[in-house]
Write a protein that binds this DNA or RNA. Structure first.
Lengths: 225, 225
DNA sequence: CAAATATAATAGTAATACTATCATTTTTGA
DNA sequence: TCAAAAATGATAGTATTACTATTATATTTG
């Protein structure tokens, strides 16, 4: 799998960036280090100036790749959802049994990323952490409807719909497959955040993965008439 | 109920503000109008300067009430959760049946606020809207652990735990009552947001309230062995 | 009605979020 | 291989933000 993956490439719609960061070494350093810096100081305190200092480059050069830090965040989160979608399709593809397929899907979509399959310069473990704590900020804005029309969230929506399809395959009569799918994906990020910062309002912990909770939840819901 | 409510008062822990906004007419105008302005332009673009202009007062005067806009947001969201906790306790108190109690609890915690019971100067309908789109920003910060220790999120956590207690009352053997409670409360906010901005990934809409989805979900989970 | 307190006005600072211009370095293609 | 093109870097500049400090004025209250 490692060898196969080393040949695939995550490509992101060109309207998110001004210049494709995959097209140059500076671009790659921008992406790679922005992930580390956002993880370190948080998106709110992150600036292109600080990133420039970190990579020994100029603020103005970064502006040639991304319009502003909001667009960079959209790029990073879209990259993550694209990568996760690939993981999802890849790891469920060979399964025959519909329940097993759903179980695997929930697992992929709710688990902590702990191993980095090491293709590309991007650290998936750190990226997952910033998706958990920063993704909401990419759509909780006044521009959300305009940006949604531009297609900036289409990968995320497609991923939710893939999970929805797995849900329907297990129980055709269940009335809210989309709401359930979106609740699982967003809820998993939330539970990961809670286990790290608000331990008193969840049973999830390093010993009890959110995956366990959500797989229990989804099958209890779907196996009921 | 209207008469009873007109005599109660939401009071917020004093470490959130520098000077109690309930103690003066300027304070009340700050709170009342900050809700309207945040709703209008979003928290990200909201500044004390703009609020000062809106209420015909000076930026520096607002700084005497709140350290910064982050603390103001904590104040507003805490006010909302306190008010919601009151609604929850009040409306479930008289019920005997445990399932009915839980059903009512889920209803109170997930519904759209459409009527404003009109005590206090605070518009609860608008406040709910800003809680849906801005509450996450109050805790998705690098200061979350320090602020959590200060007790800034205790009302929210207490509310989750109240729901957890209702869940346990219905099914003592269910293993994840806290995770389920936190998922419902956060998930409801998310579904409200989706129905307004990402209609393609939820069945929720103005005709299908998130309450319906979550009540179906919670009872399917708890009535299973 | 004087003293205390609250509010307003003004000014000032460092940082942010950019844009513009020009110089320098690197890449490329004939 | 060398000139043109493209990419990057350096510097400067602007408007806004997020405050703090100081002083003036208005309001409250004992």
């Amino acid at each position: 799998m490692k060898y196969l993956l080393s040949n695939i490439r995550i490509s992101i719609k060109e309207n998110i960036y001004l210049k494709d960061p995959e097209s140059s070494s500076l671009g790659k350093r921008i992406v790679e280090n922005s992930i580390l810096l956002i993880d370190e100081i948080g998106f709110d305190l992150f600036t292109f100036k600080k990133l420039g200092t970190k990579i020994g480059s100029n603020e103005s050069s970064i502006y040639r790749y991304f319009e502003n830090k909001h667009m960079l965040l959209l790029y990073l989160t879209t990259w993550y959802w694209t990568w996760l979608e690939y993981q999802l399709v890849f790891s469920t593809n060979s399964l025959e049994d519909k329940e097993l397929k759903l179980k695997k899907a929930v697992e992929v979509l709710t688990q902590t990323t702990t191993i980095d399959s090491a293709f590309s310069h991007i650290d998936k473990v750190v990226l997952k952490r910033i998706v958990i704590s920063e993704f909401s900020k990419s759509y909780l804005t006044k521009e959300v409807d305009a940006e949604n029309k531009e297609g900036y969230f289409s990968v995320y929506k497609r991923l939710v719909n893939r999970l929805k399809d797995f849900i329907i395959d297990v129980n055709t009569t269940y009335k809210y497959p989309k709401a359930l799918a979106s609740t699982i994906i967003e809820g998993a990020m939330h539970q990961h955040y809670l286990k790290d910062h608000f331990k008193s309002i969840t049973e999830c912990s390093k010993d009890l993965a959110p995956t366990i909770f959500f797989n229990d939840l989804v099958f209890k819901i779907l196996k009921q008439n």
